[in-house]
Simulated assay, not measured.
Amino acid sequence: MKTTTWLGLLGCAALLTGCTAASNWEATMAERMPEYGHRNWLVVADSAYPKQSAPGIETIYTDAGQVEVLEKVLSAVDEAAHVQPVIMLDAELDSVTEAAAPGVTAYRKDLKKLFGNRPIKVMPHDEIIAKLDKGSKLFNVLLLKSDMVIPYTSVFIELDCGYWNAEKEAALRSAFGRE
């Protein structure tokens, strides 16, 4: 093989190995968003969140901060006209103290600022996990692990249809039943 070919291959390999985890998770999310629809899930998890074995759950370590990852995920969902987020937080997060988990107060403030007026469902962790497990049997889940080291900080986003809602569905079902 010619020297220039080897140098070209080495250059490509250096570029490929130089990719960070962040660029990989962002590229994966960008690839999945057009494919995902209602009933798919996006999870931004803390660092202790386990890698689940369900075939529908894809786990990627982001090597990034929780709030940074969450900002990018919410931005991607907001830009996708076909889906809207149903955001779920662990109820236990409200009871985690600053003494037990330094930084939790600032994290809660960051979440309030990030979520703004978005509706948030607060549920016990086990209930959210049960919903996620049930959903992953039929629908894909992209789980993005952050470097967060505060318990009960994972943010669960079940995607819903962005251009259809419960009221429109009820009207359709009502009209459908009259036909």
Rank of each mutant, 00 (worst) to 15 (best):
V155I: 05
C12D: 04
I150E: 03
E58P: 03
E35F: 13
L159Y: 02
T5P: 00
Y36I: 09
Q52V: 13
L159M: 05
L70H: 04
R118A: 10
K113A: 14
G177C: 04
H38Q: 10
S146R: 01
L9M: 14
Y36L: 14
D160M: 08
L42R: 02
T59E: 09
I128W: 06
D63N: 14
M88Y: 13
V83F: 07
A45Y: 03
A76E: 01
A106R: 10
L143P: 02
K168P: 00
A80G: 11
M33F: 09
L132Y: 07
I57G: 07
L159C: 06
M1G: 13
A99Y: 02
A30G: 13
T20D: 06
A99G: 02
L70M: 08
R178F: 02
V77H: 08
D90T: 13
L89A: 05
T153S: 05
G103R: 02
D110N: 12
A64R: 08
A76M: 06
L74K: 02
F176C: 00
T97Y: 00
A171Y: 00
E79Y: 11
A80S: 12
N40T: 06
K134A: 14
A100K: 10
N24P: 12
Y163T: 15
R173N: 06
L16A: 10
T5A: 10
I128C: 06
A22H: 09
L138T: 01
F139M: 05
G18Y: 10
K145R: 13
P85M: 04
D160K: 11
Y152G: 01
L16T: 14
L15G: 12
W6Q: 10
T3P: 03
T17K: 10
S136Y: 04
L10N: 05
K51M: 11
D46I: 06
W6R: 15
E158W: 00
I57P: 00
V44D: 01
I128G: 02
A80I: 10
K131A: 15
P55M: 14
D126Y: 13
S53L: 11
Y152T: 06
I157G: 00
K109D: 11
T28L: 12
M148H: 00
G11I: 10
R118M: 08
L42D: 01
K72V: 11
C161W: 05
S75T: 08
A170K: 07
V43T: 09
P102A: 12
R39P: 01
S136C: 09
T3F: 04
M88N: 11
D90N: 09
P119D: 13
E31V: 14
F139L: 05
I87L: 04
M29A: 15
K121D: 11
S136N: 05
L159Q: 01
I87W: 01
E92P: 03
I157Y: 00
V67E: 01
G18L: 12
H82T: 13
E158V: 08
V43Q: 03
D94S: 06
I120P: 02
D94Y: 02
A27M: 15
K113G: 10
I60W: 07
T17P: 03
Y61P: 07
A14Y: 03
K168C: 08
T4G: 02
F176P: 00
V149R: 03
N140L: 08
E179G: 04
L172A: 06
Y152A: 07
V86S: 09
V69I: 05
D126L: 14
K112M: 12
H125I: 11
P102M: 12
